[in-house]
């Protein structure tokens, strides 16, 4: 349905996106994962025809939207990362404005506004000004504003950044509803692994402007099939212990956590006794050891050597 091919974008000599290719099939929910500055927003700006790539192409059902941007604009809804709403107007007035720019009017517009307000759970507060809303409520209206014209494809750029858990759950539920019940194709960008794991059937992982891995969440986890993740809970932090463990050959990565250490080790390596002995020699008590199923976060760590929130 929608295909980006070898996209490249350079800003003042700095390559923001380099050789990015991805595709979305109809009704799919695809995640675009990466830390801040990975090039996700630039990529979706090119896919949504807001930015022209330096090279590469974006095709919707075989038609290049670089040369015919209006082709995608008719069927696209974009939820930007910023709160792109008029703060001085109410939620209802904002939706009325965004509906009217899509030539909706009268009863059709009114019905759509009420349907979306119901969907995002703000129908009873529609007359209040946006500037009086919480961050989460603003984000929910920000999503509703992109759905007024019933788009076939929705691109969401980090829609849950900086909001309360209640609004976050509401947004995730809205995305699920859109994709599973209405059949809307969704491209969801985030740096929250768990969101992408919950919502998306396929994932692209970006870093430094490039796609570094892609596939279903299971396929990506299989990248770590040769590794185990051990979570050690310690009675006290100890930097020397972390450094010594780093020097042990089967241990591929050591990361300090809030209450201990996270180790990525080669699968089936018999390291437990060695780890316990090393801890004892540093007078650190291991309270418990947890063997962790690899997550996308671990995949990212494995691929880049850093966490998504670095």
């Amino acid at each position: 349905m929608l295909e980006a091919m070898e996209l490249r974008k350079v800003f003042k000599g700095r390559t923001a996106v380099d050789d990015v290719s991805l595709f979305l099939d109809q009704g799919e929910s695809v995640g675009l994962l990466g830390p801040n500055g990975a090039g996700k927003s630039t990529t979706i700006s090119m896919i949504s025809s807001l930015l022209t790539p330096n090279s590469g192409d974006v095709r919707l059902n075989g038609v290049s939207i670089v040369s015919k941007p209006q082709f995608i604009r008719q069927v696209l809804g974009v939820v930007p990362q910023e709160i792109a709403l008029y703060e001085e107007l109410s939620a209802y007035e904002n939706l009325k404005f965004f509906g009217s720019i899509y030539r909706l009017k009268g009863k059709q517009l009114e019905a759509k506004i009420q349907e979306l307000l119901e969907m995002v759970g703000l129908r009873d507060r529609q007359k209040e000004l946006i500037k009086t809303y919480s961050g989460g409520m603003k984000r929910r209206i920000n999503i509703a504003a992109a759905l007024l014209h019933d788009p076939q494809i929705v691109i969401m750029d980090e829609p849950t950044v900086g909001i309360d858990p209640q609004s976050r759950n509401h947004i995730l539920e809205t995305v699920r509803l859109l994709n599973r019940e209405k059949g809307t194709t969704v491209l969801y960008t985030s740096h929250y692994m768990e969101e992408v794991e919950q919502l998306c059937s396929r994932v692209y992982i970006m870093d430094h402007g490039r796609i570094i891995a892609s596939g279903t969440t299971e396929e990506l986890r299989r990248i770590l099939s040769g590794e185990d993740t051990l979570l050690l809970k310690l009675d006290k932090p100890n930097k020397d212990l972390a450094n010594v463990l780093r020097s042990l050959a089967p241990i591929r990565h050591v990361e300090e956590t809030d209450n201990g250490l996270k180790l990525i080790i080669a699968k089936h390596s018999s390291l437990l006794s060695q780890i316990v002995q090393t801890a004892e020699s540093h007078q650190v008590e291991i309270i418990n050891i947890h063997v962790h199923t690899p997550s996308l976060e671990d995949v990212f760590l494995h691929l880049t050597g850093r966490t998504l929130r670095d």
Binding site: S49, V78, E82, A84, L85, F98, I101, R103, A145, H149
Partner: peptide, 14 residues
């Protein structure tokens, strides 16, 4: 333009 409203309107038929 800074708030993103401009981009939203660009994507519309306006």
């Amino acid at each position: 333009k800074v708030s993103g409203i401009w981009s939203r309107v660009i994507l519309s038929p306006v």
